[in-house]
Simulated scan of single mutants.
Amino acid sequence: MRALQWLNLTRHGESTGNLAWREAERAGAEDAGIPERDADVPLSDLGRAQAETLGRRLAALPPDERPTMVVSSPYLRALDTARIALGQTSWAAPAAPDGLRLRVDERLRDREQGVLQGLTARGVRRRFPAEAERAARLGKFYHRPPGGESWADLALRLRSFYRDLAADAPGGRVLVVAHDAIVVVTRYLVEELTEQEIMQIEKEPIGNCSLTRWQGDGGGALRPVCYNDSTHLTAPGGG
Score class of each variant (00 low, 15 high):
222 L>T: 02
87 G>L: 06
97 P>Q: 13
57 R>L: 12
99 G>K: 00
203 K>P: 04
93 A>R: 06
77 R>N: 07
237 G>S: 14
131 E>Q: 08
203 K>L: 14
79 L>S: 03
138 L>V: 08
32 A>C: 15
149 E>W: 03
60 A>V: 11
210 S>F: 04
203 K>V: 09
189 L>P: 00
170 P>S: 13
175 L>M: 10
167 A>G: 13
43 L>W: 03
173 R>E: 07
45 D>A: 13
141 F>L: 13
9 L>C: 02
21 W>S: 06
122 R>S: 11
136 A>V: 01
139 G>F: 06
1 M>Q: 01
207 G>T: 11
150 S>V: 12
9 L>P: 00
208 N>W: 06
141 F>E: 05
223 R>T: 06
56 R>M: 08
42 P>V: 00
175 L>S: 07
70 V>L: 06
4 L>M: 07
221 A>N: 13
207 G>C: 02
177 V>F: 08
152 A>N: 04
196 Q>V: 15
109 R>E: 01
109 R>L: 01
144 R>L: 11
132 A>E: 04
11 R>K: 11
38 D>M: 07
20 A>T: 05
185 V>P: 02
206 I>G: 03
148 G>L: 09
181 A>H: 15
84 I>G: 02
51 A>I: 11
146 P>V: 04
19 L>K: 08
74 P>N: 13
137 R>S: 14
109 R>G: 03
147 G>E: 11
96 A>Q: 14
140 K>W: 06
51 A>F: 14
175 L>P: 00
229 D>N: 14
77 R>G: 07
233 L>N: 11
88 Q>C: 12
90 S>R: 14
159 R>G: 03
21 W>Q: 06
5 Q>W: 01
49 A>Y: 04
61 L>I: 13
188 Y>A: 01
193 L>Q: 08
75 Y>M: 11
82 A>Y: 05
20 A>S: 13
93 A>H: 12
182 I>N: 02
231 T>W: 11
185 V>L: 13
159 R>Q: 06
238 G>M: 04
131 E>M: 10
190 V>I: 10
101 R>A: 11
204 E>L: 05
197 E>H: 10
163 R>E: 06
18 N>Y: 10
139 G>H: 08
172 G>Q: 01
126 R>W: 04
138 L>G: 07
215 Q>G: 00
71 V>F: 04
235 A>M: 08
133 E>Q: 12
44 S>Y: 11
101 R>Y: 15
23 E>G: 01
91 W>C: 07
24 A>L: 12
73 S>Y: 05
113 Q>F: 14
34 I>N: 05
206 I>M: 09
52 E>L: 09
111 R>L: 08
25 E>K: 15
29 A>F: 15
69 M>I: 12
220 G>K: 04
110 D>H: 03
215 Q>A: 15
56 R>A: 01
91 W>D: 06
92 A>S: 14
195 E>L: 09
36 E>P: 10
234 T>R: 15
13 G>N: 00
45 D>Y: 10
31 D>N: 10
37 R>H: 15
114 G>Q: 10
65 E>H: 15
210 S>H: 03
